[in-house]
């Protein structure tokens, strides 16, 4: 398993995580159903407005799934940032992971590694986390 993602999306997610610091940022990347290819980035509002938690607003969540259905798309990537810890799924990330088909992307903008950013991807299925390789296309 691996995630292939464009440099533009990586840069946009990193920029969003910096803009929303110290809160966690979140969003999704959609792609044509069955393709597994992320083609459309949708930054989402973190309804929790928190440095330690994120949640898509329930109303936005419904709109997102309607849009995905109407456009024959699927959610290829679900991403969020960690602002103080490494880019590895937390216990709550694992407990609430509800999309077995999605790549869960985490970025970490924690101070110790600045100005570098960690950008990592995982599958989270039935409570089991599997890290996967990330290939960035230019």
């Amino acid at each position: 398993m691996s995630l292939t993602i464009s440099r533009a999306f990586v840069d946009a997610i990193v920029a969003q995580s910096r803009a929303e610091y110290p809160d966690e940022c979140c969003g999704a990347i959609l792609g044509p159903v069955g393709s597994g290819t992320p083609t459309r980035l949708l930054p989402m509002i973190n309804a929790a407005h928190s440095p330690t938690f994120y949640e898509f607003d329930p109303k936005d969540l419904l709109a997102l799934y309607r849009e995905v259905d109407d456009n024959d798309e699927e959610i290829v990537v679900i991403y969020h940032s960690h602002t103080e810890t490494e880019a590895y799924p937390s216990r709550t990330d694992i407990a609430y992971a509800g999309e077995p088909g999605a790549h869960y992307v985490l970025v970490s903008s924690r101070k110790e590694i600045a100005p570098a950013i960690e950008f990592r991807s995982y599958r989270i299925i039935d409570g089991v986390v599997t890290e996967e390789e990330v290939s960035i296309t230019e």
């Binding site: 938690f53 994120y54 949640e55 898509f56 937390s90 709550t92 999309e99």
Partner: peptide, 10 residues
């Protein structure tokens, strides 16, 4: 009726 798991975490 639509059921959706929250997209959430820490």
């Amino acid at each position: 009726v639509t059921i959706l798991p929250a997209v959430a975490g820490g």
